[in-house]
């Protein structure tokens, strides 16, 4: 189980997160939605302490790390329980696909090379990239790179995978393959926290939706409740805008066709 308690974060004197509380149960998929600049990325980065919160604590299983007192060692333990998928993939450029996946297995989890290779191959199988095992990241399409990013995270068998807009750097025609992979691993019961702008995907894959605005959780609940019966004005407005943009996109498309 993952629990965030009163997570606050300021950059300088600008508050970006104003006290976030969130509980994610094992095997749950939680999607975080919200307008640009609402603090979604920052929240995700606070969970693995890529960004140290100004206030609050992060609890994963048996370990609790507090914003101020959290030592390097505790942070390292916390990070070993998490993995992250980045918007810009951030694959290790000097390593092949399989080496990217093996790296954490060997260096962090101290597996032997053979074990790591075997595990990595299994995970690459899941994301459908076994035949690219020896390619370098630059030789892959964005969609393929992101699938490697997912494989690298998945291989570590973490308590939770944090995904920050995994498809928003992709060309539209490559979004599908990545979403499909995420959906597949969601069905395997991997705990995930996903920041995304893909509303219909979030509706489809999530057990729980969190809507953020201006550093706060405005509304949270099951997809049915949040998408069909949002209570808060800000949530309603957000979905209205999203729908309008989607509509505009569609009408543009149809006028092109």
């Amino acid at each position: 189980m993952i629990q965030l308690r009163n997570i606050q974060k300021s950059f300088g004197n600008q508050p970006v997160l104003k006290g976030i509380d969130l509980t994610v149960k094992k095997g749950e998929v939680v999607s975080i939605l919200g307008p640009s600049g609402s603090g979604k990325t920052t929240l995700l980065r606070c969970i693995n302490f890529l960004e140290r919160p100004t206030e609050g604590e992060v609890m994963i299983d048996d370990i609790t790390v507090s914003s101020q007192k959290g030592s390097k060692k505790e942070i390292l333990t916390l990070r070993k329980k998490t993995a992250m998928v980045f918007q810009q993939y951030n694959l290790f450029r000097h390593k092949t696909v399989i080496e990217n996946v093996m790296e954490g297995l060997i260096v962090v989890q101290k597996n032997s090379k053979e074990t790591a290779r075997k595990l990595a191959m299994e995970v690459l199988e899941k994301v459908g990239l076994t035949e690219k095992a020896n390619a370098y990241p630059v030789q892959l399409s964005g969609g393929q790179q992101q699938r490697v990013g997912i494989a690298r995270a998945l291989a570590l068998n973490p308590e939770v995978i944090l995904l920050d807009e995994p498809t928003s750097a992709l060309d539209p025609e490559l979004v599908g393959e990545v979403l499909e992979v995420i959906k597949r691993i969601a069905e395997e019961g991997i705990t995930m926290i996903i920041v995304t702008h893909e509303v219909s995907f979030a509706k489809d894959v999530s057990d729980y939706i969190v809507f953020m605005d201006q550093g706060e959780i405005v509304e949270e609940g099951t997809p049915t409740v949040i998408f069909n019966n949002p209570k808060e004005e800000r949530t309603k407005r957000f979905f209205k805008r999203i729908n309008r943009e989607a509509g505009i996109l569609e009408s543009n498309l149809s006028s092109v066709i």
């Binding site: 693995n48 890529l50 390097k72 390292l76 990070r79 070993k80 998490t82 993995a83 992250m84 980045f86 810009q88 951030n90 694959l91 290790f92 450029r93 000097h94 790296e103 954490g104 260096v107 962090v108 690298r152 995270a153 570590l156």
Partner: peptide, 25 residues
Amino acid sequence: EKGQAEAAYSIGMNEKQMMVRVILP
């Protein structure tokens, strides 16, 4: 790229492993 260090940290590497295995090469 800054993202390289973040990726290293995100999989649980410590500072030294990050430097020696990811940044320096």
